[in-house]
Nucleic acid binder design. Structure first.
Lengths: 131, 131
DNA sequence: GGACATCTACGACGGGCGTCGTTGACTCTT
DNA sequence: AAGAGTCAACGACGCCCGTCGTAGATGTCC
């Protein structure tokens, strides 16, 4: 198999990944500035650089160094990462029960009617596919 | 407000909490042994003790020291903890979208027909209540 | 009452994470 | 060509987490 066992992104790394997923390939400076816009926390430039270097080493981002100013790009998909993280939490806190997770997700949000309808649609689609 | 801002349990702490939630008030030894049954990881006795002491300090477990052998009990509810953890992950990885979380939860599990029915039931109940 | 087991308490450490200062290379402007 | 700005690289630090060794107190058994 040997599929993939890329290390889970840490909190700070995930924040950076979210920028890359949204903006596409970016320089350190771009990531740094966009991060400022998103986060309340103020992260230094060199911190972001270091994080991106670490992430490159781990293989969760890819770096283009053809130009002097390097360009970074996410090397793992958002969906896959979400799945891995949710799977992990589900196992650790919900005894592996997807039902419990959904229950909590519903109970927590002032889940808008729109959201509820969307979820129902998902459910239908999923059920049909399964059958 | 001032409700509560108890620190989030760490991974190892959460594993212990799960034992306490399931078994109710327990001694260190009991937790230690039950943990062995659940986990693949082999944790030393003093490690569990230390963890429980830390957790007591943080206020996420409560300790009865009336007897020589202390008895520990979870001080935060399972449901609340699940909610907090899921909320955190939802914000960090799903942009706060409950819908996305549900979508991932569904897509990941070979969600049994039984589970799907249960989820649908939850959805109905939730929708009715909201209306 | 001595030997042994059980339990809590204390302190230490190794690793990882997030943080940043500093340095040296490169580039641009004037 | 000098000075100012930008950038990647490196190393260090403080913190927290999980781990455990060891000590000391308390109980138990012959």
């Amino acid at each position: 198999m040997t599929t993939h066992a890329l290390p889970q992104p840490t909190r700070a790394e995930l924040a950076i990944l979210r920028v890359l997923w949204k903006q596409g390939p970016s320089t350190v400076r771009q990531v740094h500035e966009l991060l400022r816009g998103t986060q309340d926390k103020d992260t230094g430039y060199t911190t972001v650089l270091k994080l991106l270097q670490n992430m490159t080493e781990k293989g969760i981002v890819q770096r283009d160094e053809s130009e002097r100013t390097h360009v970074y790009e996410a090397a793992i998909s958002e969906t896959r990462t979400q799945r891995d993280l949710l799977r992990d939490l589900m196992d650790r806190a919900f005894g592996g029960s997807a039902t419990s997770v959904v229950a909590q997700a519903l109970s927590m949000k002032r889940a808008s009617a729109e959201e509820l309808a969307e979820i129902r649609r998902l459910l239908d689609a999923h059920e049909k596919r399964g059958k």
